[in-house]
Design a protein around this nucleic acid. Structure first.
Lengths: 197, 197, 197, 197
DNA sequence: TATGAATGAGTCTTCATTCAT
DNA sequence: TATGAATGAAGACTCATTCAT
């Protein structure tokens, strides 16, 4: 059911329209969750009739898929930033720096909220699951390359690092005072330890 | 709306019935998520008419609350196990051991799935949020006590440790091969480092 | 469906129990109306389990019938009072006096409320309708007798008088200030005029 | 909850659709009463899907409010007719004539039935009550004006007149032979007496 | 007699989706 | 392209009634 409509032969205008819908939908979902967001909410937020949305997306699930893809694009940019930074410092430091910078993003309620929504959805919905997993694989591939190949050891380090950072989103939801409890320098030292120990 | 009905003056039978409903509902939610689980599914799974469920719970939201509470009870037991273990070894080792043992639980798809569902829900639903946050506070309180009081430093260590472990659930959903990628001994070393560095 | 259970071979205790239920039910209905009054409300108000009510009444509709009958019994008493009064004054004056005394009853919100409920019900429910109509006939019969027989003229006077008095209940619901707007002596003069003009 | 949706900026088509629903709903209510009329009955009678009715009304209660308002509009027209008639005769006679003409309307089972339903509802439902009371006030205002101002005396005459006429609806339900029992000329004389005595 | 646990049909309401315009 | 009227299936919840105890 949930097809990501092919991007070929799409006019530029159509692309913009789709992005407009996805941005609006993502906002709604961050606020209310997938299941509490209705097509009419999305259409209102996107400034477009609900019927017309079906010209760009096959179904509500298609929009979900679009949101997930959109989310991973942002992650891809993170990797690129790290690559750029390696021109001026060693890889480890570049990653540690980037991790430090990302902390606030992971802790942000709005981000955490959407992340949980996507993960919960991926646990039931095979199509969302495969999207999530493919995207994750790509990101990790890039990451392994940065760290000199996907040896088992590097892979494990990456997983632990990712768990730690993404886990911050969970902590943010469970503990509203996380921001004050968490010592960011301690976190940074742990990150470095994970990558180097 | 969503009140956890008081446990006082409930007959033993009523308690069993409620638990029967909660167990069934938790299964459904793990499989399909809150919003895709209908009351009639729950009633079928619980072997009870849908109408009768309302003798034990005020609403579907009440059931959600029950599931959340149930989940935290299990966590309380983990803490107790750690306390017991401290009679035979030092606290740090007891925690590290318990963390190692818990790893597979966090990685378990069924656990991760329910956890994300609860977290996603808590991000929109203030009543679930407050339940989640209160429970978390209690658990952390016990934890701080084990580690000799809630100094800022200890608090931060605990947060980082929790992020790391709970983050494993996220990794499990994003990477189906996590089990093979993750070096558990490396993880154990990191856990110890977080607690002692 | 709606049978008035036979009164023969009922124990005295049973009668009291039925009355207890009817009194409770009438209160509920006055407050909430037939359709918004649940059997469990009635059972709570009557101090009796809901299941047990079915020993005395065949159905919820049977209770309605009981309430209607109960209401007319009260009306019969009014007639008796008039009869008594005719021993000391002429019939017309006795009626006018009784009408004056009844005014406040017709205006009472609680009475008006139950009356409308019964009338509305009688408009749909043939069994309630026949109960209402039979009772009304009986009351009017007595009334005609008081006034020297049911000649067409007397019948019409009675109808007009009844419309006027019962119409006060409608006015009470439509105008919460009826009590102050209505000049009771004017009303009394009109009543006398209806009977004598 | 029960808002009468604003009539401004409604398309003509929407108005017709709403009227279509209200007419259908009023029919259903006359036949079965509010509580026994289901939304699916209304939708069937209105020739419209049940879901679509919610484009025009917020809830079933909103439909009730609409029916009440509709009923009072008709009453407003009565007043207008009286005003027109005063150009050709004195006020009293105009009112007496109109009252005579209205008699059959008040006696009509279908009218009486809906009136009782509305009154019964207004006795429990504050929002219906306020609608009913406001409308009544407006109608009485016009009426007082016709009779040369709202002096206490005039007010009382109006109340008694209204009680008499509206009370006919009650009589119609209690006595199916009212039409033959009631001498309409006698009634007319009483009406004139109420206004002039 | 008396209870209240249990049922399941029925209610209002929402919402993804379609389609005439 | 674009609208939004229209559908109807599905959902949470209520409640009269039954029945084992």
């Amino acid at each position: 059911m949930m097809k990501v409509t092919k991007k070929s032969d799409e006019t530029l205008i159509a692309k913009r329209r789709k992005e407009q819908v996805l941005a609006a939908a993502a906002d709604c979902v961050r606020r209310d969750g997938f299941h509490r967001t209705s097509m009419s909410q999305i259409s209102a937020a996107a400034g477009m009739s609900s019927g017309h949305i079906y010209h760009y997306f096959d179904s509500k699930e298609g929009i979900i898929a679009g949101i997930v893809a959109r989310e991973y694009n942002e992650l891809g940019q993170l990797i690129d930033e790290i690559k750029d930074a390696t021109k001026e410092s060693d890889v480890i430091s570049a990653i540690v720096d980037q991790a430090a910078k990302s902390t606030s993003r992971y802790i942000d309620h709005s981000h955490a909220s959407l992340a949980m929504e996507i993960l919960a959805e991926s646990a039931r919905n095979p199509e969302v699951a495969s999207l999530v997993q493919q995207s994750d694989e790509e990101v990790f591939q890039s990451f392994h390359n940065l760290l000199g190949g996907g040896t088992p050891e590097v892979k494990s380090r990456c997983e632990i690092l990712a768990a730690l950072l993404e886990g911050l989103s969970i902590r943010a939801l469970r503990n509203p005072n996380l921001e004050t409890s968490l010592d960011k320098e301690m976190l940074q030292r742990v990150v470095r330890h994970v990558l180097t120990s």
